[in-house]
Nucleic acid binder design. Structure first.
Lengths: 234, 234
DNA sequence: CGCCCCTTTGAATTTTGTCAAGAGCCGTGG
DNA sequence: CCACGGCTCTTGACAAAATTCAAAGGGGCG
């Protein structure tokens, strides 16, 4: 079960520099030290929230990855976003809406649960938080637009290649963990398991790509770029 | 050419109730009467801003429709959003970013041009504006997520049918203006002109739909719903 | 070791896109 | 008023892309 690990202490938080509290000056931080949001852990199969649930809490991702998904009655699923450490999610309540998607961990995760009511207060009183949230919303919107372009205007190999390039973008040694199943990659890119598998296999055979136990490495970024931009869809 | 029609007067603005200034109390309104943003008109072929341009102004749509598009080097285009009266757009500068898409009128339009610098000031000083903008960002994000589901998880006829249903949702007499060409519908839904045309023709032949000089009417909402939800993709 | 689940691969089918030609529509200019 | 040119839209035939169905392969874990 989802497990309250303890209470967060923003002052000593390891990932505060990635969060919406990053720009808050130290003295403000100590002033709001009454705010100790619970830190909650989830296992891979536990759902953080369901689409349609009342949005009472927002969350900051501390450890692991989280997928945000929307599902059709027939079971077809779309991953609308994959969250990384420091990401804020679940804030629909700020617009008096229920959650618009479900949030599901990809493996073990740890999040900081922020009651929207408290967060709203902090936001009102601290322009830095206000500002950080605004920037994130705009940034998310931009990424959503980019994704619509991927889904609407690109072909399967282009989508997959550009996804891989993005995913591996800032991996130092070349290897990057890819904790997504073929099915999940498909759900993210609007493709079937088989289509994803076929192209990945092809590219591994051709030496563009390497994969080992959930880690991938782009061997020939140039060639992969060529695929992504093949018909000019750079 | 884009034409400055005059200066806006928020107090007497016809569409203020639809804008981010809707909730602003009257006394605040008179206080900020020094803020008279230019009202600009555009013809159908004039671009309001280009993707990549520095985002110095946001806009409120006063009259007409605007499409926000992203284009790949090969010319394939995705419409990421169609704006209606009262919508705010072009605010990427709030996150220190250039415009992420191009804004193009669908026919004659009239917008209110809001310098981001001024808007930022108003936002800081008026929680109502602040709040209205936040709600819009969250709402846009939700709509973007919905669109990702459409594009990623639905088939051509499902996408087209559910688009038509949404488009006609709040048309009183049943008839709704559809100032989008087949090509534009395709660019919105990630389909080709021909695919759009084929399904529309089919449905017109089958009596689900009516069309006359840029206006459409859904004759059998039930049947169209059946198409949209056919394989369970409601 | 054996089971289960994920992945791979093949073959057939469906869906969607491409190419090409014709139809309808509208405004211009004779 | 009509003819013409330039549109977009429609339709058909075909090709390509992607999905579906089916079966086999592989790897990790009890």
């Amino acid at each position: 079960m989802a497990n309250i690990k303890g209470r967060g202490h923003c002052q000593s938080c390891q990932i505060r520099h990635l969060s919406i509290f990053a720009q808050l000056p130290i003295n403000r931080l100590t002033e709001i030290q009454t705010f100790h949001p619970p830190v909650v852990t989830y296992a891979a199969d536990e759902i953080i929230y369901h689409q349609g649930d009342p949005s009472l809490n927002a969350f900051t991702l501390r450890k692991g990855l989280v997928k945000l998904i929307k599902t059709l009655p027939n079971g077809r699923t779309q991953i609308v976003r994959v969250l990384h450490t420091g990401d804020l999610f679940g804030f629909d309540g700020f617009a008096d809406e229920t959650y618009n998607h479900s949030a599901i961990p990809l493996g073990e995760t740890e999040v900081c649960r922020l009651p929207l009511h408290d967060l709203m207060e902090l936001k009102k009183q601290n322009p830095e938080i206000e500002n950080a949230m605004m920037r994130r919303w705009i940034q998310h919107l931009r990424e959503a637009e980019d994704m619509m372009l991927e889904l609407g205007a690109k072909k399967a190999p282009e989508r997959l290649a550009s996804f891989l390039i993005r995913w591996c973008e800032d991996s130092e040694n070349g290897w990057a963990p890819l904790p997504l199943s073929r099915a999940e990659i498909g759900e993210l890119l609007g493709l079937t398991i088989e289509t994803v598998s076929r192209f990945l296999s092809d590219w591994k055979r051709q030496g563009l790509l390497n994969e080992q136990r959930g880690n991938i490495q782009i061997q020939s970024l140039d060639d992969l770029r060529k695929v992504a931009c093949s018909s000019g869809g750079c």
